[in-house]
């Protein structure tokens, strides 16, 4: 049990916790905007923690850089899709008075 495996375990735990929190928010929040808020923010914090854990587990700078690139792309894609979805839901709401 080195300190690396302890840190990996803690990071994984934090990641899973944020994913669970995001999912609970997705299921329980009342309106689309709040659900999107739960999904994008909590889930991507979760992804960040899991990515950190994976990078630590491998312990190589090159692999950590690749994981960071993947993470960056994932949050940019999530930001874009969240924007688009928010716009669609707002349109749907203005359509039905």
């Amino acid at each position: 049990m080195t300190w690396v495996s302890v840190a990996t375990g803690l990071l994984l735990f934090a990641g899973v916790f944020f994913y669970a929190a995001g999912t609970v928010g997705l299921l329980r929040f009342p309106d689309p905007a709040a659900r999107l808020h739960a999904l994008t923010k909590a889930d991507h914090l979760g992804l960040a923690f899991i990515a950190l854990a994976a990078a630590l587990e491998w312990g190589s700078v090159a692999i950590a850089a690749k994981i960071a690139a993947v993470w960056l792309l994932a949050i940019m894609a999530a930001g874009t899709s969240a924007q688009l979805m928010a716009r669609v839901t707002r349109q749907d709401h203005s359509d039905e008075p």
Binding site: M76, A77, T80, Q83, L84, R87, V88, Q91
Partner: peptide, 18 residues
């Protein structure tokens, strides 16, 4: 291409980036 101009704006910057 998306029809809504604001959505198109978001999608365009993402497309140019990706």
């Amino acid at each position: 291409r998306m029809t809504d101009p604001a959505a198109l704006n978001v999608a365009e910057s993402f497309g140019r980036l990706v």
